[in-house]
Computed example of a mutant assay.
Amino acid sequence: MTEQTIQAIPPQPRPHEERLKDTLARFENDVDVWVATADADGVPCMVPLSFLWDEGTFLVSTQRTNPTARNLIANGRVRLAFGVTRDVVLVEGTATTLEVADLAPAVREAFAAHTGFDPGDCAPPYPYFRIAPVWIQAWREVNEIADRQLMTAGHWLP
């Protein structure tokens, strides 16, 4: 077998439990995520933002006047994309807007420590957005696509 042939054979699909463990590790350890939103006319916007995985939700922040913030404030719908195309996690969720004063000091400190950025120190302070996942999918290769669903309707699948 040549090296090229070996690379063309995908690894065995991960069992559900391993895929869930890998996904949660990514949420705990990754710092940045692609955030996709759309305005009322359907104009898409996708940007990378730093995040904190906090008690089963994602916490992000961006300047209030940015399209992403305006879209999240207007409709709360969001998609997140983690990883590369051969190791992807997709999340669809709903966002709630929070001001700096709405966050417990420990959460604000955890966000700043994890991301290296404190939105409350900006002038004016950036709002935070708490994203509650509604569905989550994860897969690496085509052989994992059939079983990619980890969460539906806000509930983890067994």
Rank of each mutant, 00 (worst) to 15 (best):
F111H: 01
Y128S: 00
R19E: 06
I6L: 11
D118Y: 09
V100D: 07
G154W: 03
K21W: 08
V142T: 09
P124V: 01
V100G: 04
Q7D: 12
E18G: 05
T152V: 14
L59P: 01
A132F: 02
I73Q: 14
N29P: 08
W156A: 13
G76P: 11
V35K: 03
P105Q: 13
E141T: 12
A81S: 14
Y126S: 02
T65G: 07
G154Q: 00
P15A: 12
L90V: 10
M151E: 08
R86A: 01
Q4E: 12
P133G: 02
T115H: 03
T96N: 04
R108Y: 00
A153Y: 12
T85Q: 07
E92R: 10
D102L: 03
P124W: 01
A74E: 15
R86C: 03
L98M: 09
F51K: 03
A123V: 11
T57E: 12
S61E: 00
T115A: 06
G42C: 07
T85R: 06
A146I: 15
A36I: 05
E141Y: 13
V142R: 14
A8M: 14
P133E: 07
N75R: 07
F111G: 00
R26D: 04
V43A: 12
P44T: 10
R108A: 08
R70K: 14
F58I: 04
P105V: 11
F58W: 06
L72S: 03
G93D: 07
T23S: 11
A112L: 06
W53Q: 08
V88T: 14
E99M: 12
A8N: 11
W135A: 14
D121E: 06
M46C: 15
R19M: 15
T2M: 09
E92S: 09
N75K: 03
D32Y: 13
L52E: 04
F117H: 15
T68N: 12
R130Q: 12
L24N: 03
E109A: 04
P15V: 08
P67R: 15
A146F: 15
T65Q: 04
T65P: 02
W135Y: 06
D39F: 11
